[in-house]
């Protein structure tokens, strides 16, 4: 058994602040994502979740603060690729709409540097866990897929890199409840297989149910970090969304 307390966290942000022009998106954020954990970062839109996701994936160099992956500081690599072993399913999925399902998946493996043969092997594996409509016709252009199918494909594309940590930004956005359930089932399976999951969400329900730890962001600041259960969590959650004064 892995000793969770002594192993370095899979990902950690220390005092991360980020501004876009004059806009403060993250304001001294520190979070630790332990290896094998399922962590949810919740907050209303504009709270800074997507920025934090980009920073933790190594895709955005923060204005200040450091990011560590597996205990090692990640050099600021704003224009480089993602941190090895970390995959991001971005907000809005950002599939390549003109490319086929198969091509989208293939790029997930290719981008992570997998060999041609290895990519094809993973492709068969990932296709098998996708909805039937995708499995049956992997030649379809991604733009023609439904929202749920697109989200599943986006996760599949990230999984093609065989990440140790999966960051997923707003998977439930624009999805009907039954599809959201499918997405979360898959995330649970991945978590059970040992993948560390970091979830950025606006919708609290599912996130709370699945996570070991909950972080709440409000206007770029961490206002709560801890157990997703209990009164403190509940209060923080409500106030993070609606604002305390409103209740």
């Amino acid at each position: 058994m892995l000793d969770m307390t002594s192993a370095p966290p899979a990902l950690a942000a220390e005092g991360v602040t980020h501004r876009y022009g004059g806009v403060l998106a993250l304001d001294g954020v520190s979070v630790q994502i332990g290896t094998g954990q399922f962590v949810s970062v919740l907050g209303s839109n504009g709270a800074g979740k997507s920025t934090l996701a980009m920073v933790l994936a190594g895709l955005l160099a923060p204005s200040s603060g450091t990011v560590r992956a597996g205990g090692h500081a990640v050099a600021s690599r704003g224009h480089g690729g993602p941190i090895a072993g970390v995959s991001l399913v971005p907000e809005g999925r950002r599939l390549f709409g003109q490319l086929s399902v198969r091509e989208n998946l293939l790029l997930g493996g290719f981008g992570a540097g997998a060999s041609g043969r290895e990519t094809r092997r993973r492709l068969d594996e990932v296709l098998a866990s996708l909805p039937k409509a995708l499995r049956d016709d992997p030649g379809r252009a991604a733009a023609t897929l439904s929202g749920g199918e697109q989200q599943m494909l986006a996760i599949g594309r990230a999984i093609m890199a065989q990440p140790r940590t999966l960051i997923i930004d707003e998977p439930s956005m624009g999805l009907a409840p039954v599809l959201i359930n499918q997405v979360y089932e898959w995330l649970s399976r991945l978590h059970a297989d040992g993948v560390t999951i970091l979830l950025m969400e606006q919708m609290a329900t599912h996130a709370v149910r699945h996570s070991d730890m909950m972080v709440i962001l409000d206007r770029g600041r961490v206002v709560y970090a801890g157990s997703p259960q209990g009164d403190a969590a509940s209060a923080a959650l409500i106030s993070g969304y609606i604002g305390e004064e409103a209740l």
Binding site: Q202, A204, H206, Q229, S234, L247
Partner: peptide, 27 residues
């Protein structure tokens, strides 16, 4: 009105993602 919206379970579900069960769980 804002008060009505805040109390509307459909809105809480769709927008805040807070279902009554989830809240009951916390409570």
């Amino acid at each position: 009105t804002p008060a009505e919206i805040r109390a509307n379970p459909k809105v809480r579900e769709a927008y805040f993602g807070i279902t009554e069960t989830a809240e009951a769980q916390h409570a």
